[in-house]
Design a protein around this nucleic acid. Sequence first.
DNA 1: CGGGTTCGTGAACGCTGTTCACGAAGGCAC
DNA 2: GTGCCTTCGTGAACAGCGTTCACGAACCCG
Lengths: 208, 208
Amino acid sequence: MRNDDRRERLRTALIDAAEATIAAEGLAALKARDLAKEVGCALGAIYTAFPDLDALILTVNLRTLALFERAITAVTIAPPPTGAASPAERAAAADTLVRLAVAYLHFAAENPARWRALFQHRITHALPDWYLVEQVRLFRYIETPLQVLRPGLGDRERALLARSLFSATHGLVSLGLDEKLMVLSEPVLRGQIEIVVGALGRGLAEGG
Amino acid sequence: MRNDDRRERLRTALIDAAEATIAAEGLAALKARDLAKEVGCALGAIYTAFPDLDALILTVNLRTLALFERAITAVTIAPPPTGAASPAERAAAADTLVRLAVAYLHFAAENPARWRALFQHRITHALPDWYLVEQVRLFRYIETPLQVLRPGLGDRERALLARSLFSATHGLVSLGLDEKLMVLSEPVLRGQIEIVVGALGRGLAEGG
DNA sequence: CGGGTTCGTGAACGCTGTTCACGAAGGCAC
DNA sequence: GTGCCTTCGTGAACAGCGTTCACGAACCCG
């Protein structure tokens, strides 16, 4: 249908424009009227492509997650071989955790507005499934080295610990870059992450 | 002066009403018109007592910080004696870090709306000095056990590490309680905090 | 009691996201 | 091609927000 084509064109045009605005000026600068003007459609047309601006923002955030994944695939390790890991393999796994955390910091520092939109955005409705699936998938990057470091953990415990490790790292990056509590330069913050995540890896490896 | 008295009455009435609203319904429910109706003043009168709602919110947040301090004084340890700490003292310091983190979680879980207002609030202007001073003061609760655990650290490094430890804990609590990433019950989250902060303490104590 | 100053008042402003009656445009039967 | 029906974008309008400001009341002082 010609109509569906136009709808799809409008959708992508809106996503592109919203992404550009968020990346350049932040989530707070995203206004419905500006958006309509940029893509050359009427104000109400936005709401034929998305139920509300929240849904549009969520779609932009999905793109950000895809961008982020491309940034961390470089520091990933292979899935663990069956059987006990050697001390060297354990050390490599701990090191991967640190590299992942540093990669997270680096992405946040390089794409501050995009990255902030991921969390600054306050949800009213429940998150859609396709967004949650993406989150779960990304956590595997943490679970893999964790499986080497703590092979005794069950699937649920490992998934939970992976989320906790991410949360801790996110706290470091979030408060370190945001001007609310402190503003740290990226090198200083990287040092802190290496210290904290490094200590975490050591502590997790030794503590039973 | 009679006028100054009324201004002061208005100020405290506004803070009280704002605090009650934030505690009961969250920061998003705080509206200028509702506030004026509750304290029985005109809409414009709010702006004779505070430059804008942000300043009022910040004052409420200061009260929250005071509340929080009362909640953590119970788990504090005495300032470290000069000289090297015994292994038992080091273990006690590591344990204090865990207890502080758990106390932070507990406070956040008990006062969710108040606590969220501390961070949900997006700043436009720079934070006022009296607010920053309060923040610095509260960080000493973390720095004290840290000084026992890592006596070799300089003042700046210790202050930085204290902020990093707080940031990591805040990440755990923030993402664990907020429904964005996951919703964990307080006991489960407490377990995660004990695991992560415990591992952090061990890793920091051993790693030079 | 008059005159000057100070202060609260609330209608109004500018901005927001979202809606909806309307008119234009597309598709279809004849 | 023509008439009709449906379908869809349009943008004025709505409800709500924080903030402002001319105005009138209330106060202080001589």
